[in-house]
Amino acid sequence: MKIELSNYSKVIKRRTVLDHVNCIFYSGNIYGLYGRNGSGKTMLLRAISGLIYGTHGKVVIDGKVLHKDISFPKSMGVIIENTNLLPNYDAYTNLKILSNIKKIASDNDINDALSSVGLDPSNKKKVRTYSLGMRQRLSIAQALFEDPNLLLLDEPTNALDESSVEIVRNLLLKKKEQGTLIIIASHNKEDLNILADQIIKVVDGKVILS
């Protein structure tokens, strides 16, 4: 998989949130987007995921122009800010409902994804009773359980304790070895130093490759 952003800009309410971004991402790599709050990291993830339309430029995914040839990347798992799962259902049911849309993940895939992040698939507790860390782990399971080719993760280790951070890091490294393209936005430099093959600094909507 290859994702290319060419001269991509996004202006929202006269404010340039992404400014002539040019970068290429290849599968089998982990890319880290690093920058302070409001620098444009999440907006860059939204641009790649197809959630926003660019003001200028384009995103090309495997030769197909986003919003022209395709509406969204075909196989993608996301964790992005302002998302949450259904609070009145347990973890398994939440993923089961989502799995009914594409119908590519089996019950085993759901169970495996939940177990891999340290959640018990048979636990019938409703998500609204979960701690922040458990919700975050469920979000990660949600992004992973359909085994997508592209993972866009916004602050994936937020609210996780040390052991959970370790579990998630290992999971992501395993996915990378399987050829998944992973883009992580984080302000946690330690995470990115351990995980990322390339760290991309985002400053005021501009991308600085390192």
Binding site: F72, V78, I80, N82, T83, L98, Q142
Partner: peptide, 15 residues
Amino acid sequence: INGYGIFQLVRHQSR
């Protein structure tokens, strides 16, 4: 268009 809907949207692949 917020929250859970984003998870559905990226799976449906269609606004």
